[in-house]
Amino acid sequence: MALLRHLSRSVFLRSESLLAATTTRSTRQYHENVVQHYEKPSNVGSFDKNDPNVGTGLVGAPACGDVMKLQIKVDDDGNITDACFKTFGCGSAIASSSVATDWVKGKSIDEAVTIKNKDIAKHLSLPPVKLHCSMLAEDAIKAAVKDIKLKRSNAE
C-alpha cells in the first residue's frame, strides 16, 4: 500500500508539491477575518435541494480543485430567510462562502446578486492571488438565485 501510494503520488502529484508549498506559506499571511471565518464559519450545512423554497448554487474553481455549494431559503416575497454552504477548498474559499451566506440573509434575491466579490475580498483583506476564491462565492450566490428562479418559473 505504501509503495502504491508513493508511486501514484510520484506519477500524479508532482505539480501538487509546489502548490502545497505555496499554500503553506500563504496560510500564515491570512487576515484575522479570514482565520475567524475559517475556524468558526457561519452557516455551514445543507438544505433539502428538492425543497421548492430552496435555491442551490454549485460552482467550482478548477485551478485549485475547490468546490462550493451555497443554498438559500426564499420566502414567497423573494426574500432570503436563511442561507448555508458547504465548501471544500482553501481558507479563503471557506471564509468567502461564510461571509456570502451572512450577507445574503435578509436580502431579496435581486439584492443578493448585487454582492460583488470585490466587497467580500475587501472585507476579508484577501491578497490578489486569492481573489478568485471570493469570485467563487459571488458566482455561487448567482447560481443559487438562478436555481430558485428556475424552480419558481417551472412551478407556475
Partner: peptide, 15 residues
C-alpha cells in the same frame, strides 16, 4: 485558470 465553472455533473460528484 482564474475563472469558475458550473459543471453540475462533475461538481456534484466531487462534492
Amino acid at each position: 485558470h482564474e475563472g469558475t465553472i458550473e459543471d453540475p455533473e462533475l461538481l456534484m460528484e466531487v462534492m
